[in-house]
Design a protein around this nucleic acid. Sequence first.
DNA 1: TCTATATTTTACGAATTAACGAATTATTAA
DNA 2: TTAATAATTCGTTAATTCGTAAAATATAGA
Lengths: 133, 133
Amino acid sequence: MRPLVRTTKALADENRIRILGALKGRELCVCQIISLLNLAPSTVSRHLSILRNARLISSRKQGRWMHYRLAGRDAPESVAAALKWVLISFEKSSRRVADEHRLETILKIDPESLCRLQTRPEDCQAQRRVQAG
Amino acid sequence: MRPLVRTTKALADENRIRILGALKGRELCVCQIISLLNLAPSTVSRHLSILRNARLISSRKQGRWMHYRLAGRDAPESVAAALKWVLISFEKSSRRVADEHRLETILKIDPESLCRLQTRPEDCQAQRRVQAG
DNA sequence: TCTATATTTTACGAATTAACGAATTATTAA
DNA sequence: TTAATAATTCGTTAATTCGTAAAATATAGA
């Protein structure tokens, strides 16, 4: 696929835009993003790979955890410009504000117990409590 | 659909990006865009409605002809910024260069005979000649 | 009016995409 | 080693999107 179209296709999904918004100014591990979007881990992983393929984000592996962050100097000029545009445009939307609010809660939980919430069915109530904010 | 996602989805197709590139600095009627993309009129019309819906382009009806142009002051700030970004990013691609070259040929033909090329089967040879050059 | 024509809308098949669960991989801890 | 676990890949399904042809709409000219 042509690079420009790869960029626009990567941006053409609300959940992927939400991921970019959430990564603004910080790194997040996959389980934190899963918690935010409330989607299956496999779905989130695919979104992340699409964003990384488009060079909008980059990743860092630390033990079992994978940390994602916005692309920096590594991004091509056109991609960096797209990122800048989308972050500014998304910043004031109600969705972005709600996500940021929820992230405050998520960031208070240590990642390890967050991950357990996602795999253990018996903790679903607790997870729902987290999701509610 | 949320406005930002409507914008990114509108941009997530190469043919629609080509339309935006072709409209840079000039108005075009639908038959000229059909000639450029070499797609069915109905397909081109749909692409145009998606772009207009996203407010990336606007239109002007003159008799039977519909003229499209890039959005100007009428576009929301975020849309104008997207347009600026995509035009700059697309400008130097080989696809854009080829399209511009072909547009030179298309613009030499008066729109009326261009439209006839699209509907009259007996003129297919002539059309192919146009497409090749 | 009637006909021709530029464009749009509608209907539908083919291709793509987003979602999930199951299986797999890579790493840590027992 | 073996088990546990964070993340990814794979296979499937449902929804969306792109393309076309055919029908509808709107306008110009006879």
